[in-house]
């Protein structure tokens, strides 16, 4: 692939993506009054997080077992309101440990 072709493709890609992000974010200034829309926007981030997490988390480590253990640890620790970093680190450590332990059994 030539550098010129790549540069044109890169510019088209980056510019399109930026404009999609920038235009609504920069230009929208009204306070939304509709109770339905306000409620919709209130629930949206949690719904996005939920949809992004399941089922993708189960495939995030390359092993269903280690991912499930990590998910379990994350659920328990976050139930007790541990910080984002603690939950993330503990879940990774648990997944890694599970993989390490099961490597002896295989």
């Amino acid at each position: 692939m030539s550098a010129g072709f790549f540069a044109a493709g890169l510019a088209a890609m980056a510019l399109t993506t930026y404009l999609i992000r920038m235009l609504p974010f920069a230009l929208f200034r009204k306070k939304i009054r509709s109770p339905f829309l306000r409620s919709f926007l209130y629930y949206t981030p949690y719904a996005v997080l939920g949809a992004m997490t399941l089922p993708a988390i189960l495939y995030s480590t390359g092993s269903l077992l280690t991912a499930a253990v990590g998910l379990g640890v994350a659920l328990i620790l976050s139930w007790f309101k541990r910080s984002l970093l603690t939950v993330a680190a503990a879940a990774c450590a648990a997944a890694w440990l599970t993989g390490w332990l099961t490597s002896f059994m295989a």
């Binding site: 997080l49 992004m52 997490t53 993708a56 995030s60 994350a74 620790l77 939950v87 503990a90 879940a91």
Partner: peptide, 8 residues
Amino acid sequence: YAMFVAIV
């Protein structure tokens, strides 16, 4: 993903 769980 663990972080997402910790937010929700």
